[in-house]
Design a protein around this nucleic acid. Structure first.
Length: 421
RNA sequence: GUGGGUGUAGCUCAGCCGGUAGAGCACUGGAUUGUGGCUCCAGGUGUCGAGGGUUCGAACCCCUUCACUCACCCCA
């Protein structure tokens, strides 16, 4: 209201008490699930040299072309707030030669990412991802295992209504031929395509397959699919992934039109999609990147990974029961003496890990009880001048509405306090 | 970057055809000078998002601007 107050930055949100519990639940669930599959956490900086993202994500992607928070530091180096997590993780992997410790690295990370886009539902400028990467294996079994883990995570946190879609993008061997086939197909129907798709035909023909304009969906209905143009190696790999998914009873559908926004993907790609997020459909996405480690100057190791959007997960989790903590004891006092006694007792309880509250503003007993009720306190200790004089306190059970007199000498035992302080 | 919607009390919102604001919830106090929930009573701060214009008079009409929001593009 006051026009002088400082507000937060557009698209960068505060996560308040009441919301943060869902985030903690998602993060602890992810840690537990990932640990069981052998992943270890890695923490990397939020800022990297700009070049890292240009080289990994691709110079001509939207992310690199117009969505990065890039600035020059005081030495003049171009720095960028990370728009995704895989590139920094691979950079760290290479820099610390993690492949010399173990031929296979399974890593996970979580934290904020930054993209300068126009915010909307499920899409923010600072958003948070939970991601995992496996480096050093190209066996289709690991593709299936990654998907099994992802799918299990959703089951664990209780998010349903999501579907796993998979596709294969081929490799540098089979992709050029496919790209040409698609290009020929689109060129022949250019007139039927929307303006955006006509542009895409020139820049990124795969995107035309993803267009939502009815005319384009119709025009591209018979377009060649990547998975029909895979080379033998990629085809065998994809078939093996599929059969392993069936063995592991991971439900999935093949979406031959699935497209990636980052250039480094090869072979298997996948998304966890939903129709409950407004215009956003992907809650998690990832794929194989068999060239990336080498492209960034590391050993020629294959990799596969995914990232989940934490805001999107939280939206799907929906409003959960308010888990605000309830005090085990509320201390209500009347008079200076009693207040002093109560304040000491309060601190002793808190030091022993027992959540206790009291009123600090010297209000009426009625007001104190009202606050105790609002906080959901299970019991209230009532201490007035009368009680102090008699060496007792009233211990009230809020749910039952009953109370009893407890001698002060027995108070510690009744409140579960260890006797020596 | 482009388009739509919405801005009125702490929150959710009402406010007709222009006559300078209301309800519910929440909060505080009281009914009960020391006993919560239920009930009843009382209590109010709004620069009506901001700036300008039309008018005797604007929350309402016009213009501009900002914020939020949804969607396009694109993506987790």
């Amino acid at each position: 209201m006051t026009n002088v107050s400082i507000t937060g930055i557009k698209g960068m949100n505060d996560i308040l008490p009441g919301e943060v519990e869902a985030w903690q639940f998602l993060e602890s669930s992810a840690r537990r699930v990932f640990a069981a599959f052998g992943y270890r956490e890695i923490r990397v900086p939020v800022v990297e040299k700009t070049e890292l993202f240009c080289r990994s994500i691709g110079e001509t992607t939207d992310i690199v072309e117009k969505e990065m928070y890039t600035f020059a530091d005081k030495g003049g180096t171009s720095m960028t707030m990370r728009p995704e997590g895989t590139a920094p993780v691979i950079r760290a992997f290479i820099e610390h030669k993690l492949h010399t410790l173990d031929p296979v690295s399974k890593l996970y990370y979580l934290g904020p990412m930054f993209r300068h886009e126009r915010p909307q539902k499920g899409r923010y400028r600072q958003f948070h991802q939970i991601g995992a990467e496996v480096i050093g294996l190209d066996d289709p079994k690991i593709d299936a295992q990654v998907l099994a883990m992802l799918s299990h995570f959703f089951a664990t946190v209780g998010i349903d209504g999501v579907t796993l879609q998979i596709n294969s993008l081929g490799c540098p061997e089979c992709r050029p031929a496919y790209r040409q086939a698609l290009l020929d197909f689109l060129q022949a129907r250019l007139g039927q395509l929307c303006a955006d798709c006509q542009r895409r035909a020139a820049t990124n023909p795969l995107r035309a397959l993803d267009c939502k304009v009815p005319g384009c969906i119709e025009a591209t209905a018979g377009a060649p699919a990547v998975i029909e143009h895979l080379c033998t190696g990629c085809d065998l790999h994809f078939e093996a992934v599929r059969s392993h998914l069936t063995e592991l009873e991971v439900p999935y559908t093949v979406n031959p039109r699935m497209v990636r926004g980052l250039d480094y993907y090869t072979k298997t790609t996948f998304e966890m999609v939903t129709d409950r997020l407004g215009a956003q459909s992907a809650v998690a996405a990832g794929g194989r990147y068999d060239r990336l480690v080498a492209d960034l100057g590391g050993p020629p190791l294959p990799g596969i990974g995914f990232a989940m959007g934490e805001e999107r997960l939280a939206l799907l989790l929906g409003a959960r029961d308010d888990a605000s903590p309830r005090p085990a004891l509320f201390i209500a006092t009347l008079g200076v003496e009693a207040e002093r006694f109560g304040f000491r007792l309060l601190t002793r309880l808190q030091r022993q890990g027992i959540y206790a509250e009291m009123e600090y503003a010297g209000k009426s007993l009625k007001a104190q009880l009202r606050r105790a009720d609002k906080l959901g306190a299970r019991r209230v200790l009532i201490l007035g001048g009368d009680e102090l004089a008699r060496g007792i306190a009233q211990l009230r059970d809020m749910a039952a509405g009953t109370q009893e007199e407890v001698p002060l000498t027995e108070l510690d035992a009744r409140l579960g306090l260890v006797v020596c302080d």
